[in-house]
């Protein structure tokens, strides 16, 4: 891997981290009045996969989508403005944190019902196939989404129709407070189950952005070569509470060892360790640039107007 790719991966990881931390810091001001699921700890999954996609490839996601939106190239000002409920937000204040979109970046939408965008992503890829497009669709979801019926229906349909779609399961082991072992048989691996359903499937350390990128890049190429749908399970850790700005380590639903391990598996630290060529001065200049970008986005959001109340009654139907 050359230094410029590593630098870009680092920059994307840090961009998500800084923005998410800023949201977390400011959330208690009560100006961002919507349920917000932060992705601190899970940045590498989004960054590694999105780095293997181009702007014309599509992505969709679920309730925890900031990192996918950012990694896919979504507009940052519009993201923060959306959290503030402003008219300049990506969804004009109608969506909030859980309903993000940036068509210019190929980020086609995220929504809150678990697994709800999985068939939508499959439909995007059906359209790409019908048009003989060279592009693919990437569907981001969590481990709990693999418990919904529509997940199995979608996997089957994608396999049947041999569609250009990449399923990315970010397995952080927790559905809110409930551990995977209480939801799925422990002896069964998600990616192996999907493999048995007829889709070539892979797993990877989802905190190691270089591994994720290398694997996703390889997989994306095969999909673009017409080799059909693929499935990638990325093992990662959610650092904060399921929904909200805080750590919830004190609640005891995660063991102390598990918490300690997750912090050691910090995607940013792993990349720094794997890529010592990234100089401190380079890292500092990236950090400075991103701090400025983030600060500007919050200023943009704060200074933007709220939508006029009448906007609540628009855009329901096309005519």
């Amino acid at each position: 891997m050359n230094i410029s790719i590593a630098e870009n991966l680092y920059k994307q990881l840090l961009k998500i981290r800084i923005i998410e931390e800023e949201i977390s810091d400011r959330y208690s001001e009560e100006k961002m009045r919507c349920p917000t699921h932060l992705a601190i700890g899970q940045e590498a999954a989004a960054v590694g996969v999105c780095a293997s996609l181009n702007n014309n490839d599509y992505a969709v996601s679920g309730h925890r989508a900031h990192h996918h939106y950012i990694a896919k190239g979504g507009n940052i000002n519009k993201l923060i403005a959306e959290l503030y409920g402003k008219e300049t937000g990506c969804s004009g204040g109608k969506g909030g944190s859980m309903h993000l979109v940036d068509k210019n970046a190929g980020f086609m939408g995220s929504t809150a019902i678990v697994a709800g965008t999985i068939p939508v992503g499959v439909g995007l890829s059906l359209s790409q196939k019908l048009k003989s497009s060279k592009n693919i669709t990437c569907i981001f979801f969590g481990d709990a989404a693999t418990e919904e019926g529509v997940f199995y229906e979608s996997i089957n349909f994608a396999a049947l129709k041999d569609l250009p779609v990449l399923f990315v399961c970010e397995n952080n082991r927790f559905s809110c407070f409930t551990h995977l072992s209480q939801r799925q048989p422990e002896s069964r691996k998600i990616f192996q189950m999907v493999s048995a359903m007829g889709i070539e499937s892979f797993e990877c350390d989802g905190n190691d952005v270089i591994s994720v990128y290398n694997m996703a890049n390889q997989i994306t190429k095969t999909i673009k070569n017409g080799e059909g749908p693929k499935f990638l399970e990325l093992h990662t850790d959610r650092w904060l509470e399921h929904c909200g700005p805080n750590y919830d380590d004190d609640l005891g639903y995660r063991s102390k060892i598990e918490i300690k391990k997750s912090r050691e598996n910090d995607p940013i630290k792993i990349l720094e360790k794997k890529f010592p060529e990234l100089s401190s001065s380079k890292k500092n200049s990236i950090k400075k640039e991103l701090n400025l970008l983030t600060e500007q986005a919050f200023v943009f959001a704060e200074n933007s107007n709220f939508p006029p109340e009448k906007e609540a009654y628009t855009n329901l139907y096309s005519q």
């Binding site: 969709v60 068939p119 939508v120 499959v122 439909g123 059906l126 979608s154 089957n156």
Partner: peptide, 18 residues
């Protein structure tokens, strides 16, 4: 189609977005 009414509806939505 497979007997997957919910998924094929989502598929229709996704295709329609494109």
């Amino acid at each position: 189609i497979p007997a997957s009414e919910n998924a094929v509806t989502g598929v229709a939505i996704g295709a329609a977005l494109d």
